[in-house]
C-alpha cells in the first residue's frame, strides 16, 4: 500500500501552487534584472554582461534628470515618513492609551480613510482641492499628499505593537513616582521602538513607490523617480530603465530585510514573552 500522508496540514498540489506563485512573482523581476546588465542598445538582443547602463544612469544624458528625481523622491519620502510616523504614534497613544472618548470610532475610520479611498480618487480630490484654493502644485503639494496617505501605513505597525504592550508597565512606572509624561518617554516609547521603526520604513517605501497621486499633484517641472520612469517608459522601454528598476528593486529588498531585522529585534525584547518558572 502506498504511504499516506497523515499530516492534516498537507494538501496535494499546494506546494506546486506556491512555487508557481513565487515563479509568477519573481520571473518578470529577475528577467529585468538580468537584462539590465545587457551590453546592447537593443533591449531584445543579448550581447555581453556589462554595467554600461548603470554607468549611463549616473553619467549619461538623462543623469541630471534622474538625479533630481531621486533627490525629490528620497527627500519627500523621508519627510513624509517622519511626519506620518509622529502623527501616527500620537494618534495610537490617544486611541489605545487614553481610555474611551467621544469620536473614537470616527477617529479610527478617519485614520484608515486613506486606505479605503481608491488612490486615483484621492489623487483627483487632492488636485481639485489645491486648484480650488489656488495653491500652486509642486514639491510641497506632493509632500502634503504623501503625508496623508502614509499615516495609516505608519499607524498599522505602531498600533499593533502598542496593543501588544500591556499598560501595566506604565502603571508600574507611575507607581514608582514617574509622571505620566515620564512613563510615556521612559517606558512606552522605548518599548514601542520596533513598531515605530517598522511604521517609518513602511511609510517611507509607500511614499517612494507612489505614482498615481504624485502624478496628479506634482504640477509642472517637479518629478519623482516613479513619474520620471513612467514618462520614459511611455516612449518605450530603454535599457537604462531596467537598470534604474533594478536599483529600486535592491532598495526594496534592503528595506524588507531591515524591517525583518527590526521585527526580530522586537520579538527578542518582547515584554509579553518573559520567561516564567524556575
Amino acid at each position: 500500500m502506498a504511504t499516506k500522508n497523515v499530516d492534516l496540514r498537507h494538501f496535494t498540489g499546494f506546494k506546486s501552487l506556491t512555487l508557481l506563485c513565487l515563479f509568477l512573482l519573481y520571473a518578470p523581476l529577475i528577467i529585468v534584472m538580468v537584462y539590465s546588465f545587457n551590453d546592447s542598445n537593443s533591449i531584445t538582443r543579448w550581447n555581453t554582461v556589462s554595467l554600461r547602463w548603470y554607468y549611463d544612469l549616473f553619467y549619461g544624458v538623462d543623469a541630471p534628470k534622474f538625479k533630481t528625481a531621486a533627490i525629490n523622491s528620497v527627500s519627500i519620502a523621508v519627510m513624509a515618513a517622519i511626519s506620518a510616523t509622529v502623527i501616527a504614534t500620537m494618534a495610537a497613544t490617544a486611541m489605545l492609551r487614553a481610555g474611551s472618548f467621544r469620536g473614537k470610532s470616527v477617529s479610527f475610520a478617519l485614520i484608515n480613510l486613506p486606505l479605503m479611498v481608491p488612490e486615483i480618487v484621492t489623487a483627483v480630490a487632492t488636485l481639485i482641492f489645491f486648484s480650488a484654493i489656488g495653491f500652486t502644485t509642486g514639491y510641497l503639494t506632493i509632500l502634503i499628499a504623501h503625508i496623508v496617505f502614509c499615516i495609516p501605513f505608519a499607524y498599522l505597525p505602531i498600533a499593533a505593537r502598542m496593543q501588544g504592550i500591556e499598560d501595566v508597565y506604565e502603571q508600574a512606572a507611575q507607581d514608582l513616582y514617574a509622571t505620566r509624561f515620564q512613563a510615556f518617554r521612559l517606558i512606552l516609547l522605548p518599548l514601542m521602538a520596533p513598531g515605530i521603526i517598522s511604521g517609518f520604513l513602511l511609510a517611507f517605501i509607500i511614499s517612494l513607490d507612489d505614482f498615481i497621486i504624485t502624478n496628479f499633484v506634482k504640477g509642472a517641472g517637479v518629478e519623482t523617480l516613479p513619474t520620471v520612469i513612467f514618462g520614459a517608459v511611455k516612449q518605450g522601454i530603454k535599457p537604462n530603465i531596467m537598470a534604474i528598476s533594478t536599483l529600486l528593486l535592491a532598495v526594496s529588498v534592503g528595506f524588507v530585510a531591515l524591517s525583518y531585522f527590526v521585527g526580530r529585534m522586537g520579538e527578542k525584547a518582547n515584554p509579553t514573552t518573559t520567561k516564567q518558572g524556575d
Binding site: Q171, A172, I187, A269
Partner: peptide, 13 residues
C-alpha cells in the same frame, strides 16, 4: 505606596 504586580511588570528594556 508601591506595588508588586501580579506578572511583576519588570521593564523589559
Amino acid at each position: 505606596i508601591n506595588t508588586v504586580f501580579q506578572q511583576y511588570a519588570l521593564f523589559p528594556h
